[in-house]
Design a protein around this nucleic acid. Structure first.
Lengths: 365, 365
DNA sequence: CTGAAAGCGCTTACAG
DNA sequence: CTGAAAGCGCTTACAG
C-alpha cells in the first residue's frame, strides 16, 4: 500500500490573497463572503489570486471566533453511537434535525454523555463542556440529563431536549403524548373485545433488565417514555402484566413474548401492547414460532410507526409518532433560540394506525 | 407550554477571570489547561474567580484559532443521515471511528455530500468546504467522491477514505477484500456440491434499480463494493445470475429472491449468495414464504457479519467483515496524519463464518 | 512559578 | 465601491 505524504503545508491566508490581488484584507473578505458591495472586477481579481495561491477560502476557525458562531449544533446522545443508532426513531429524529438545520444537512456534531474513563485519554478535547457548538439538542432523558443541561447552560449554549422528563428544568422540550397515545391503542383493543392483554415494555432504567414489571420497579423507573406508555396501557387495562425487554429490538420483543405467551391457550393474553414497533415485530415472531396466528389468535400493537424491515406481510397496528417532525421542530427551536427569540416547548401527538395485526378477540369454544 | 428566556447574555472572558483573580491572562489560561506550572494557590484563586463570574471555561472558538486545531473530525456520508444510518455496517464503522477518536466518543461532525439546493438556504455555513474540521473520513465511494477529496485537499484537511475506489488518488484508504472474501464463500458452496447458484446484489450505481444484472450494467457500474463482490462470486460460478436490490434491506432481499426462486424446483438455484446480511435475511424470508426449507433446499450466504435482528433461529453463514475495526483504523489514521506522520492504506480481510444456513446440495430424486 | 507581548486569521463597523 | 483599524478570546514562546 502506498504511504501518502501529509506534511502540513503552510496554508495561505486571506491577507496573502489580498496582497497578491492588490486589495485590502477587508475587500478580499467581502469578495469571499458575498456580504457588502464589491465590484465584479475586484472580486474576480481576488478569486484569481486565491486560485493562484491555492487558497480554499477563509479559515472557519477564525471566522467563528470573529463571528461568535461556529455554525455547529451538538446532538447529545445518551449512549454510544452504536446503540443510539439502532433505534430507527432516533435516526429519523436526527434526520429531521439535520434537515432543518440546513438543506445540505450538515453541521451536526455528535456528542455522547458517555464520559467516565475519558480522563486518561488522548487529547480529544471535544466534550459537552468544550465543543465549539452554538446550540445543542439532547436526545432522550437520562440520568446525566441534568448534568448535561447544567454544563451547557453555564456555557450559555441554548438547549432543546427531545423527550426529556417534563418539568426537569425550564428548558425547551419536544414532547410526545406517550400516555394518551398508548391509551388510544389500548382502547382499540378493548373495543375489539380484548380483556386479557399483556404489555411488552421498553427499559425502565439503565439496567436494561428482562423481567416482569413490579410496582417497585415502576417506582424506581427513570425512563419517562416507558413509564408514560405503561401508564397509558394500564389506564385501560389496569391489571395487564408487563415484561421489559433489554432494549428496543426485535429479539427482545420475541423473548418477552415467549414469556408472556407461555401459558395455556385459555388463559394466555389475546392481545399484546408493545412499546415499540421493533418489540412488536418480535412479538409477532414469537407468535409464529408458537403457532399462534396473528391477528386471529393474538392481536399485536406497536408504537412508533417505523417501517420494520422484513415484517411483510404484516402491517402493524401502531401509534405513529412524527419522529422526523419532532427532529425538525427541535432544529427549528435551536435556530430560533440562536436568533434570540423566545421559544416554547412543543407537545406532539402520535396517530393511531390500524394495520392488520389486530382483530376481534377470538371466540372461545 | 412555558416559553423559555434565551437572551444571549454576555459571557465572561478569561481576561475578566484573570483580573478578578489578580493574575495575568497567561496564568489564568495555564490554570485551566493544566499545561505549564501553576501553584495550587494560584490555580484555586483562578477557579474561584471563574466560579464567581460563572465562567465555564475557555471559549473553544478562540482556542481553535490559536491552536490551529478544532478537535473535530468530519465524517462524510454520501447520502442523507436517514439512509446512511440504516446500514448496520456504517454504524459499526462510525462507532469504531468515534471510539478511536476519543474514549468519550465525541467530536464527530456529520457531513453529507448531498449538496444541491444548498444555495438558497439559510446561513448554515457548515459544508465540506467550510467546516472547522481537522481531518475527515469519507464513508464509501460515490460519484462526488473525487470532488469531496479535492475540496478537502485544497483546504489541507487530511482525508481517509473507507472503501473508496482504490487508486482513486494517492489517498489513505481503508479497504476490504470483497472479491476474495466472496470467492471464499462461493467456494464453500461449491464444496457442498452446489452448481445452480444465484446472486442477490447490492446497488451497482446510484439508480438503485431492482433488476437482473447484465454485462452492460456491470460496465456502467460505479459501486466498487458491489462489483468486487460480484466478481468474487463469479470467479467460482461464472454463469450465476444476479439480481440487484434497491438497497441493503431485508425487503429488497426478499423481492430479489422471489424473482430468482420463481422457477421450477428442478431448475431453480440451490444456493443464493447475498451481498449483505440484510439481503440474505430477506432471501430466507422469501424462501419461507415459498415453502423452501433453508438450508435443506436452499443454502443462503450473506456478507457483513452483522447480527440481523429477528433472524433467529438462523445463524447466517456469512463473511464477517471487521466493521468496527475498520472504523478504528480510519480514526487512527486520521490521528496519525494530524500528528504529521505518514500513513499507509490498509486492507482488511473478511472472515468466513459457517452458520446453519448452508448445507449440501439437495439430492434430486 | 508568573507576567508582558505577540499573534492565530478573520470580519466588521467606520471613514472615505 | 474600497481601505485602515480594531478586536473576537485565547495560548504560547519568551523573560524573569
Amino acid at each position: 500500500m502506498t504511504a501518502v505524504d501529509n506534511s502540513v503545508e503552510h496554508r495561505p491566508t486571506l491577507a496573502a490573497v489580498a496582497a497578491r490581488a492588490g486589495v485590502s484584507a477587508s475587500t478580499a473578505s467581502l469578495a469571499f463572503s458575498g456580504t457588502g458591495p464589491v465590484s465584479d472586477a475586484t472580486r474576480e481579481r481576488v478569486l484569481q489570486a486565491a486560485r493562484e495561491l491555492n487558497y480554499a477560502g477563509p479559515d472557519p476557525r477564525a471566522r467563528s471566533l470573529r463571528r461568535g458562531r461556529s455554525g455547529i449544533v451538538g446532538v447529545v446522545l445518551e449512549e454510544r453511537v452504536r446503540d443510539a443508532f439502532r433505534d430507527p426513531i432516533k435516526i429519523a429524529t436526527l434526520d429531521g434535525i439535520s434537515e432543518e438545520l440546513g438543506s445540505i444537512d450538515a453541521g451536526l456534531l455528535v456528542l455522547t454523555e458517555v464520559a467516565g474513563e475519558a480522563e486518561g485519554d488522548e487529547k480529544n478535547p471535544v466534550t459537552l463542556s468544550d465543543a465549539p457548538i452554538d446550540g445543542a439538542v439532547l436526545m432522550g432523558c437520562s440520568p446525566r440529563f441534568e448534568e448535561s443541561i447544567a454544563t451547557l447552560r453555564a456555557r450559555g449554549v441554548p438547549v432543546v431536549a427531545i423527550e426529556g422528563n417534563p418539568g426537569d428544568d425550564d428548558i425547551v422540550m419536544i414532547l410526545q403524548d406517550n400516555r394518551e397515545a398508548t391509551r388510544r391503542g389500548a382502547e382499540h383493543l378493548k373495543a375489539l373485545g380484548h380483556t386479557r392483554v399483556a404489555i411488552v415494555a421498553l427499559s425502565l432504567d439503565r439496567d436494561h433488565r428482562r423481567a416482569l414489571v413490579t410496582p417497585e420497579r415502576i417506582a424506581a423507573g427513570t425512563s419517562a417514555t416507558t413509564l408514560e406508555r405503561l401508564a397509558g396501557a394500564r389506564d385501560v387495562f389496569p391489571d395487564a402484566p408487563a415484561y421489559t425487554g433489554a432494549g428496543s429490538y426485535v429479539e427482545e420483543g420475541r423473548l418477552a413474548a415467549l414469556e408472556l405467551l407461555s401459558g395455556e391457550a385459555s388463559d394466555r393474553p389475546t392481545a399484546i401492547i408493545a412499546q415499540s414497533d421493533l418489540l412488536a415485530a418480535g412479538v409477532i415472531r414469537a407468535a409464529e414460532e408458537l403457532g399462534i396466528a396473528v391477528p386471529e389468535q393474538l392481536s399485536v400493537i406497536g408504537f412508533d410507526g417505523v417501517k420494520v424491515d422484513g415484517l411483510w406481510p404484516y402491517d402493524l397496528t401502531t401509534l405513529v409518532q412524527p419522529a422526523a417532525e419532532k427532529g425538525r421542530a427541535a432544529g427549528r427551536a435551536v435556530k430560533a433560540m440562536l436568533a434570540g427569540n423566545d421559544v416554547a416547548s412543543r407537545l406532539f401527538t402520535a396517530e393511531f394506525h390500524e394495520g392488520n395485526t389486530t382483530a376481534p378477540v377470538p371466540v372461545v369454544e
